[in-house]
Design a protein around this nucleic acid. Structure first.
Lengths: 359, 359
DNA sequence: CTGTTAGCGCATTCAC
DNA sequence: GTGAATGCGCTAACAG
């Protein structure tokens, strides 16, 4: 392994100057800098991460959990987006298992104690989530992907989150259908009190009521619940059509349910089925769907993570001289205000708009 | 952060003794050991990973890639299994992006140079895979999940792999159907020369020929190709039934295709559809499927990874005193011979048997 | 602007 | 069996 000393020797400078070239290039004379950079290139030098971490007491690593069975169809795409954005900022992503919320807390504790991570990304937050309590208690930085439904601290700066506006997405889709002449639009949603599910349901409800396509009493007829699997989608669709044979469109809370619904439609039907998440399956079936801005979400998550260290609780941080992206990495000059496309726009709570994919 | 010195002070011993208690407990007197362990417990001490890595020049970390779009429906389950097995052995898992094979090589290079990773886990190996060439050239340890199809080094100890026997799984499923009276069994496979796809196809073919359920000439009629999405599964199923209305079962190379096939069957049909991977969707649809032993796969991958460092190219290593699993972690005393359930049984090439899930 | 000194936390020599 | 040194590779203080 080639170390900073080798580079120093090769360039005829001190190790310190090499370090400066990497971490604080502006303070070193351009001439010597060129020299050093040439040596770095020639020797193919890369700073040792462990040594740097030991010295700086920062891991430049974020941890994210993986459950035994995936939360959703988009989780792997989200992981890819997160890793991509992290990589562009010189940050690594460590994976840990989450067999349960308690298990996840144990992982927090271990990773934290070993100094393996700076911050965590949590998904699937629940009411009174014990993980949040633990993280707060231990002053452990984190960012939620998904809002802390049911928690009081939705706007607490100490509970940063990034989420996609399901209400908006479903409402837009419903309005799109209305605009294209659909008059009787059903909805297949998830049972229970999942915040995400209720939010999406409300999108359909509000769009329907807003366009006066149904009275409050009629909504119930147009609504069916289903567990998130294909068979349940089929069953729900059949039940819905049985009750309301006049339906000309069904908005589904997920692509999985949409596929279930679509596969039990009579072959000569005109009924439109729509889903959520724009999965490969929906695409192949020609179903309209709603795409989450995963890359943008990941970008905000990484940004917030970074900011937690430069400015523990305040607003934006100047781009300053602190950037330590040794190699690669796109520019970090971002204008969050231009990215955040919906209210809550304080920079620790970001609600992003999904986009309709009409097929 | 509590360090080894704090523990030493608390226990009234030298830092060295504390280190020994952790890494080489046998050489320290039981009495003092108890003392130290009590202090460790009391102070909730955990060794700093970066410091240890810097000292030992081992990261105890394996890297695994995540593609923009998932290789398969089981990838996240595999990730969970891998993380679980790694965790049980005191190993962490780092995630990196793989937008292409070339991109993955860049990641190898970066992670390796920074000392972030000891070993890599690769999936989706292709013919003349440039990643393998790079890894070999740089003497970078790795393990494949999936065989190196088309490569000459299938049995090369320097190219360790763990895979699931698709041929066996599909053949077993086909035989199961035959045993239960099915006489005309079709197959929907993937197009192209994917090693995995051809292996599974061969399983069906060999089972059919072996049971004399079809002559070599008839096989072609019973076979249809489809891209791995639901619509293609539907189309293929229709084409197959159109050509051979007498079919009473269709074996599919994946659950996705099986779901496509199942959703276009007439409602009064008796035709059995089977899939591969035992996904939630297949389960919900009541389809028989073939489950990969992901945990066992992950276990072997982790084991091989470990062995690459204790015994670079030879056989088994004694359990010795080298184990450095500070916390948690189940026993590492395994008998691979009892686990490996199919030939290639040299311990660097493991072919595992999947299990039928009959519904 | 550059070089020297020191130490992050740990594990591996060696003395004792 | 235990304690005292040394250095892994790097960067944050200083001194020049």
């Amino acid at each position: 392994m080639v170390s900073i000393k080798d580079v120093a020797k090769d360039a005829g400078v001190s190790p310190q100057t090499v370090s400066n070239c990497i971490n604080n290039p502006s303070i070193v004379k351009p001439a010597t800098r060129k020299l050093v950079e040439a040596s770095i290139e020639r020797l193919n030098y890369t700073p040792n991460a462990s040594a740097r971490r030991l010295r700086t007491q920062r891991s430049n690593t974020i941890g994210i959990g993986i459950a035994p069975v995936s939360y959703s169809q988009v989780y792997d795409r989200f992981l890819h987006a997160l890793v991509t954005e992290a990589d562009a900022n010189g940050i690594r992503v460590i994976l840990y298992k989450t067999d349960s919320q308690q298990d996840e807390i144990r992982q927090f504790d271990a990773l934290r104690a070993r100094g393996d991570v700076d911050s965590f990304v949590l998904t699937d937050t629940t009411h009174d989530d014990p993980r949040l309590a633990w993280l707060h208690e231990h002053h452990q930085p984190f960012v939620l992907f998904g809002r802390p439904w049911g928690a009081d601290d939705m706007n607490d700066p100490a509970t940063p989150w990034v989420d996609v506006d399901g209400h908006y997405g479903i409402a837009e889709m419903t309005q799109h259908l209305i605009l294209h002449g659909r008059k009787h639009i059903g909805f297949i949603g998830w049972p229970g009190v999942s915040g995400t599910g209720m939010d999406r349901y409300a999108g359909w409800r509000d769009a329907m009521l807003g366009a006066r396509m149904a009275g409050p009493d009629e909504l119930e007829q147009l609504y069916e619940e289903a567990k998130n699997d294909i068979l349940s989608g089929q069953t729900a669709c059949i039940a819905l059509l049985d009750r309301r044979p006049d339906l000309d469109a069904i908005v589904c809370v997920s692509d999985t349910l949409a596929i279930g619904a679509a596969t039990v439609l009579p072959s000569d039907t005109d009924i439109i089925i729509t889903g959520f998440d724009d999965t490969v399956s929906a695409r192949s079936m020609g179903l309209s769907s709603i795409a989450q801005p995963l890359i943008e979400s990941a970008r905000h998550i990484v940004r917030i993570t970074q900011e937690q260290f430069v400015a523990p609780a305040a607003g934006r941080a100047g781009n300053g001289t602190g950037g330590a992206t040794g190699s690669g990495g796109t520019s970090v000059n971002r204008k969050p205000d231009a990215i955040v496309s919906a209210p809550p726009t304080d920079d620790r709570h970001v609600l992003l708009k999904p986009t309709l994919v009409i097929r």
